[in-house]
Nucleic acid binder design. Structure first.
Lengths: 218, 218
DNA sequence: CCTCTTTTTATGGTATACCTTAATTTTTAG
DNA sequence: CTAAAAATTAAGGTATACCATAAAAAGAGG
């Protein structure tokens, strides 16, 4: 396994988790990774040969058991490094992702286990996302998105997707985990959600609201 | 800069430090990296184009200032990770090298600085080798090798080269930093050095004695 | 069922970093 | 000065992982 393959598996895992469907469309993979459809197809064939994915042309890809295991290991490494970088090295919220992205590919099983213990067996990363256990179990975090909140609701941020632009955006506006957002209403035919937070009004598009998960208080 | 280039620069730095000469023979690089002379030549031309080395065919290679800076940064990362892996994660002496080898290529400047502070600004790695400062200064450690010791001397181990087989060998025989080795004599026309340590007699070849540095008490 | 869109395949190309085998050049040692 | 040894270059090859362009196949909707 190398960097490229690991990235594909991780991305596949994330896409199938986000869309809550096992099968992932190659076009979506292509967009997510920023590669052409042609390149993605080539790589999927290689991953298929290695039994990491199950690829049925015209019907999407699915991680095999082996592929899933590897994907989860990468996610685990990523989130554990994020905890380390934040808790121990005090890196900024938005820098975490990029650094963890590099370290995750350079971490052996042994180091991962020791790191896990050293960090006090954390259950979630800094962005609130669950850290898979060593045997690959993933505890599902909050699934309710901010996009689903209605005017009058108070939305409490529990986890956000580890997506660089989103993190930058939220950090700049002081919206962290635990933040309480009062949903004021919708704008632009429902595309934008208007929320209040600490006397500030924010207009949030779907690429933001669909990536934030939490609880609703009515 | 990528993994391959970084490895070349690091190896060049180590070879020129070990031989105490600026210029490195491509044949030595070739042996150290385990690549053919042809491959090494190709790569040296690329590194030369990028101004990382100064390559005069038939007269060896030399790191440029830029190449030196990068090499030292890799050494710094390597040794800091070793300290982390040993002090914080409690990895075994011999496992350190391999793991640090991977992490060093995945570490940004920022993380390196924070890690340095977090570890308490260590001066040497676990094998006793100096950790270059952020601005590239390297404090020279012990330079006297065990190979230079004479019968009757007591050799105190201060640092050993970060060379996997050597570390495995020493760990198996409980020879750690600070170990006091009594030099008994030579064998095989001087190829082998006979030393005593904790009631054990060891016969050490040059690939071992030339890689161990320390002080001599007469 | 047929068109349109999407997806896939086919071909050929790029860069990196290795390799082998075989010349050729340069250095070095006698 | 010259032959042997060492270093370099030449030529062609491999695998990985991208790319573009274009053709072909399959699916989806009316």
């Amino acid at each position: 396994m190398n960097r490229a393959e690991e990235d594909y598996l991780k991305q596949l895992y994330e896409l199938s988790t986000n869309t809550q469907s096992e099968r992932v469309k190659t076009a979506d993979l292509s967009t997510a990774l920023g590669h052409t459809a042609q390149s993605v197809n080539e790589m999927l064939k290689r991953l298929s040969d290695k039994n990491l994915v199950n690829y049925t042309p015209y019907h999407g890809v699915r991680l095999t058991k082996k592929g899933h295991q590897n994907a989860v290991r990468m996610i685990r490494a990523h989130r554990l490094w994020e905890v380390f970088l934040s808790d121990k090295l005090d890196l900024s919220w938005e820098a975490l992702h990029e650094e963890a992205e590099k370290l995750e590919h350079a971490t052996s099983e042994v180091v991962l286990d020791k790191l896990y213990t050293y960090l006090g067996k954390p259950k979630t990363c800094i962005h609130g996302n669950p850290i898979p256990t060593a045997d690959g179990q993933v505890v599902q975090g909050a699934t309710l998105t901010l996009a689903q909140a209605e005017p009058g609701d108070v939305f409490i941020v529990r986890r956000v997707q580890d997506h660089a632009p989103l993190l930058t955006y939220l950090q700049a506006r002081d919206i962290a985990l635990g933040a309480r957002l009062s949903v004021v209403g919708h704008e632009s035919l429902g595309d934008t959600l208007v929320v209040k937070h600490q006397n500030q009004t924010h207009r949030l598009g779907q690429s933001i609201t669909a990536r934030m998960f939490g609880d609703i208080e009515t």
